[in-house]
Design a protein around this nucleic acid. Structure first.
Length: 303
DNA sequence: CTAGGATCCTGTCAGC
DNA sequence: TGCTGACAGGATCCTA
């Protein structure tokens, strides 16, 4: 599901495609996912894209931001003149760009004055020379978009509660403190956004496998060597995720419509019944930890 | 403090 | 073939 690497790859593409555009109009088809007055972002020019854990903010030049969490099936897709030959996304975007799962469309400024361009955008055919738009699509409707004041994002309840984030402020020392502070199952600690930001199910499974730690091992029972190894493993799997542009597990696509590739490189995630990649001869098992599907090698990962 | 369940939602898939 | 029910899952909230 979209975790740090997936959301970061979306962030990078948005930097590339939508920064510099002005939001001309906002079409909301599903009100429940949208909080705030859309009038406040109309006329705003996009200047920066930030990421907070698994959430994104699209910052405008009028001190308003679109604060977005795509949860597991949300998609942000760009169509416009600076994207040549977008790939076919019909199998990834259920119902198409303007189908029943399109909840919000941000009409961007390119060539917008041309009368034909509005029609083209409405039919999902915005492309080179015919207008630009950013589509928000989410067939499970868990994701959300909120309009917030740019300099108050830190104070939102979401960002407020986020723990330190790998590659940012999560040092080995901080990680060690977090891990030692609770007796929860270690996998649940990794996935708890208030303890560590950005890690979700796929990378938690793979990091624990790489560190040879059982997902249900009590967090505060890890020794120093295990803590260090796990810390390094988290960075390794996240790096790998970033390198492959994320994992297109269910419906993850990047704004240009391309998919990530980490799903072909997972270590244990989604591999129930397969042989352990360590070559130990064991088989990958699937259990539930904290209500979430959990994959591990019972030979390599002991409690 | 921790565990577990319910909630939100819909496509997918197993079972009959 | 067609229906029904279970399931998945990020974050949050509630109860035990």
């Amino acid at each position: 599901m979209p975790e740090l690497p997936e959301v970061e790859s979306i962030r990078k593409q948005l930097e590339n495609y939508v920064v510099g555009h002005t939001i001309e109009d906002v079409e909301i088809n599903y009100k429940k996912c949208f909080t705030g007055d859309p009038e406040k972002v109309k006329g705003g020019k996009i200047k920066k894209i930030r990421r907070f854990g698994k959430a994104l903010s699209i910052d405008l030049d009028n001190n308003y931001s679109l604060f977005i969490h795509i949860k597991m099936t949300g998609q942000l897709i760009y169509r416009g003149p600076n994207l040549k030959n977008p790939p076919d996304i019909s199998d990834k975007v259920k119902g198409g760009l303007n189908g029943k799962h399109n909840h919000v469309t941000f009409i961007l400024d390119n060539h917008s004055s041309h009368p034909s361009s509005l029609k083209l955008r409405r039919t999902g055919k915005a492309r080179e020379g015919q207008g630009a738009a950013l589509y928000y699509i989410d067939y499970r409707k868990f994701g959300w978009i909120k309009i917030v004041t740019s300099d108050k994002i830190q104070e939102t309840s979401f960002v407020n509660k986020l723990g330190p984030e790998p590659f940012k402020d999560l040092t080995l020392d901080k990680f060690s403190t977090v891990v030692q502070s609770t007796g929860m199952a270690i996998k649940n600690v990794l996935m708890d956004q208030s303890k560590i930001a950005g890690v979700g199910n796929i990378y938690a499974n793979d990091a624990l496998f790489l560190a040879d730690i059982h997902p249900e091992k009590r967090s505060n029972k890890l020794n120093d060597a295990e803590v260090k190894k796990l810390f390094e493993s988290i960075e390794k799997v996240l790096m790998k995720g970033l390198k492959y542009g994320g994992a297109s597990e269910v419906s993850f696509v990047r704004p240009d419509g391309t998919t990530g590739n980490y799903q072909s490189h997972t270590l244990v995630y989604g591999k129930e019944g397969e042989k352990c990649p360590n070559g130990c001869g064991g088989e990958i098992k699937k259990i539930k930890v904290g209500g979430r599907g959990t994959y591990f090698c019972s030979e390599c990962q002991k409690k």
